[in-house]
Design a protein around this nucleic acid. Sequence first.
RNA 1: UGCCCGAUGGUGUAACGGUAGCACAGCAGACUCUGGAUCUGUUUGUCAUGGUUCAAAUCCAUGUCGGGCAGCCA
Length: 601
Amino acid sequence: MTELEPNSPLPQVVPSDFIREIVQQDIASGRRQRIVTRFPPEPNGYLHIGHAKSICLNFGIAMETGGVCHLRMDDTNPTKEEVEYVDSILADVRWVTSGWADSVLGLKRVGETPTSAAHGLDFQIARTTASDGTPLEPFFASDYFDAIHAFAQQLIRLGKAYVCDLTPEQTEQYRGSPDRPGQNSPYRNRSVDENLDLFSQMRDGKFRDSACTLRAKIDMSSPNIWMRDPVIYRIRHAEHHHTGNRWCIYPMYDFAHCLSDYIEGITHSICTLEFEVHRPLYDWILSTLQLPRPLPHQYEFARLNLGYTVMSKRKLLQLVQEKIVTGWDDPRLPTISGIRRRGVPAASLRTFAQEIGVTKYNGLTDLSVFEFAVRSELNRTAARRMGVLHPVRVILTNIPAGEVLWVDAINNPEDPNSGTRRIPFSREILIEQEDFQENPPPKYFRLRPGGDVRLKYACIIHCDEVVKNTTGQVVEVRCTADLESRSGGANAGRKVKGTIHWVSAEHALSAEVRLYDRLFTVAEPDRGDGDFRQYLNPDSLKIIEGWVEPSLREAHPGDRFQFERVGYFAIDVRDSRSDKLVFNRTISLKDGWAKESARSP
RNA sequence: UGCCCGAUGGUGUAACGGUAGCACAGCAGACUCUGGAUCUGUUUGUCAUGGUUCAAAUCCAUGUCGGGCAGCCA
């Protein structure tokens, strides 16, 4: 089970965008009393950060207006959908909304469905709370199959739908093309009775897959392709993850979605830009069925494009199936489960969504915006620890072997309530290879021969001697510790330019550290015709053995830390064990020195 | 060459006929027992051309560029 996030203590600025303005107008004008939105993923893959944007929008509007947002599985295609995806989607939505919008997460009692057309065509199903202890589950479009089927029959009775025997290929030909009108199907003028009869034969399994379809009767010469007698029901002799073998005909997205919205009493049906051309059909279905108003309305916004990654479900599935990554929750993936495993807090996803805004402009968001949201949240909340990733041994010659000096370290300078901890300090320590240079460049102010540096929370040391092996590699640095410069000591105020992190060699814990980098080498790997896999970053994962301070022995899977001066790391929830810690690098710290040193090579 | 949508610094967004602002990135500096964080300063922008108006990023027209639409996918 996914661990949920604590409440975010920071007050949130109420965001504003063109959709929220419409919602506010609808409330102000009295057109809507209570806002009901929905988040309607198809359970055919895992959710990604683009979905997080949509979740933040839909649940955010519900939060801000005192409404509710239904989580609904848009499951009308049995051949692509699986329960594994249903479960992961629920877990991901709970995680993103936890500590923030849990109170407006719309679920329903397990097994509850609309009571079908027995009540006429005007009925609605609403979200319930778990107050009586009944287990809850998401809404499912497939729970409305009876109702949707009744609506289809009604459409036939109104003379607005017909059963068509054209083959898939013929249907395509008859549809015409964007700049050429289509032509009427020869089956377009079947009588109501014949259509009703054929449709019931379809439902009863009298026909093979694709033998015929139910189509809306609209206008084959419409400039909008989706109004050219769109298919609204097709035959699929396939087992459905939620309805089993009860059905062999399934409604198409366009027919099921608007009606699902209607059945749930959705007020604002928010989707991405590619559905813009479907909106006339959405409206046509609801108004042709003469359903009581107010009807739900569809609004569209631009989906998220983020640099150096891919977002399409197809490509993500490909990366998983071809084992280019380790699974849907690989920390390099932009999936919500990957992002979570990597150590990104849910609050970062929310502030990110707020920063990028909601518009109809199809742009490419710079990765740095996301990275900033991650760093700023982690800076506030992550406990500081010390860890050395690429060690070099330092001997403090004036400290006797076997002596252990304990020093106090601040857990989080950004959080006064986080307290302190004790760290062992002794004769042999490990420091970062980068923090010692025999021939340092200008402006380098860490350890050098004959130079001084402060060991964070311990004392200032002076480098006396460098020991190398036969290949000239530095294997040991011998230093003298100024023990009076320890915190609280006589020389505590002594200033040196550099401060570095360290661990006591004898006490440090060995840990596996997984260093993640962007999955692709170019900002838009799926741009152009080529295979996006050619841009895979061969260095997207480096696994090393690092050394961390002993207090980490008590840490738990999922805990997030800042290794001082290095970056943010989370204990892997899948592979870490108490006797062999595994850390995922969430993100590195900003490195001002890297920038400085790159300037004058 | 049909229909729909869009265009504001490097990137993302605000300004709803009246001083083009914010965030990220960048640059410069201050501070620092994290070259982190923080703080200060700062470079860069209304797609083009006409029109309406005292006044246009905003309204209108035309053009340019970008995106979407021809699944019995969603």
